[in-house]
Design a binder for these strands. Sequence first.
DNA 1: AAATTTCTCTGACTTAAGTCAGAGATCATG
DNA 2: CATGATCTCTGACTTAAGTCAGAGAAATTT
Lengths: 291, 291
Amino acid sequence: MFHDPVSRFRRFARAVTAEVGALDSSFLGRGRPLGAARVLNAIGHGKREVGEIRSYLGLDSGLVSRLLRGLGDEGLVATSPDRSDGRKRIATLTAAGEAEFAAYEALANERAEAALSRHADTEALLAAMDLVASAFGRDRIEFREMDPRSEVARHCLGEYYAELARRIEGGFDVKLSADPEAETMVRPRGAFLVAFSDDMPVGCVGLKGTCSDYCEVKRLWVEPAARGLGLARRFMARVEEIARDLGVPALRLDTNKALPEAIAMYRKTGWTEIERFNDDPYPDHFFEKKL
Amino acid sequence: MFHDPVSRFRRFARAVTAEVGALDSSFLGRGRPLGAARVLNAIGHGKREVGEIRSYLGLDSGLVSRLLRGLGDEGLVATSPDRSDGRKRIATLTAAGEAEFAAYEALANERAEAALSRHADTEALLAAMDLVASAFGRDRIEFREMDPRSEVARHCLGEYYAELARRIEGGFDVKLSADPEAETMVRPRGAFLVAFSDDMPVGCVGLKGTCSDYCEVKRLWVEPAARGLGLARRFMARVEEIARDLGVPALRLDTNKALPEAIAMYRKTGWTEIERFNDDPYPDHFFEKKL
DNA sequence: AAATTTCTCTGACTTAAGTCAGAGATCATG
DNA sequence: CATGATCTCTGACTTAAGTCAGAGAAATTT
């Protein structure tokens, strides 16, 4: 009655607009009208074509044109025709524009930091904020194929190993620095996927190719705050697709009873339990899926 | 590196402005400019004096005056001079204004519901949103003295009993419908406090007076999402203040080892452990504080 | 090659929002 | 009861934001 979902959502909205409004107002902190500041920041965030800026900000073509001219007069933005399509124009930041964009970013970071510093139990708060952000951004989660030795991939793997160490009794140990399996998770033998929510990595999975009979699915991990969004299933579907592309007839994986959600998911998505197929000390469950 | 606090906060801000913006835009859903809609809603939410509306919305005096006249011309708002101060004017909603305000509320509720329905694991999401909202609204938490038999109080008590039942081994049982202790927690014998964050009850505490030697602190409860904000301490400080007002020389309380956070808090805030002073079957720790 | 579409820009407009000085009424205070 | 303070309102302004029709250039289609 006092805590019905709609009231809770609206209370959240009120609380958040007040706090987050201060961050948005960093757009006004440098004596430029909102519209011009938004265009400058859109360019800074990689929107370069005029039409792209227009649709990103939802503005009228005439308006964007005028705002760009204003920024040009200030010496912050330069425009040039698109090489491949002479009708289009490309906007780029000048050195002064880059500096101005960096100043906006610094302002926003500063305000974010100030907002955070007002709170005591920051870690619990941030965990809740991550959960909300991941849920709200669910439909915009992007999967990118990456090198498993890249910084982002190693970050995900580190989190994955840490979680295994926490959950498997007796612990878990991988020499993190040198991962001997990396090249087996690169095309054409395999692949490695990272999921990004608003440019923050929130999960990964590896497809490891060591023989022609099957590929192995390895290192499936989803960040705690992004669980419950069906990410693991989407990872598995993508991995199957890639395996089909690679022409592999079957997939295999091993896992541990300490990860019951994963085991349940494999069972529900067409995997069948098979005999042990390696001598790795950690796994105690083995699955296969014919493609 | 990918998850530093500032990035996480900013990601949250981006995710939330998109989602919550739709809710705010319900202010534009009825063909009235934002300013007028905000004034109408401010009045609907109990801001009646013109000056109060002005400071609440942060608007210029001339602007508010004009907006009010516009709403008056539409037949939604009527103004009358304040009886106790003829310089001030009081704005009230007419019947049509009430209807229009209700329509805005309905629109916002509808959008909130739509936003929520896009998410699968609503309960986890709402729990995270409650935590964020409580943390952001921490400085605006209000304590109100209420009748322990009121609906709000009974809601809090119900949550308190449910939590005890969950945490005490062997369970906990109170006949919820008839609480024989209610009148001992009403002035002049005692008191009952409820904490509100943005009009949502988030905790309670009772001060029970049965004899002249001491009062008992009972039913200290803080909603899970509002923990870690120091609410329990603030409750205890208020309760001590009230006890001093009532002229009681000491406070006592009993508690259970299943609530270690509470026990630690009592020890840290000047309470001393004493011998059992009642024959209640549940408590196993007893404290006293001289005033 | 001509017709049509796409893309950006310009000029002429409207509306919303906000600022500022000062008028007129009422209140509080010596 | 005179003086200054407070409160709301009015009129005259500015700025930001947005809309719309159409022109000019380049691309695409017929």
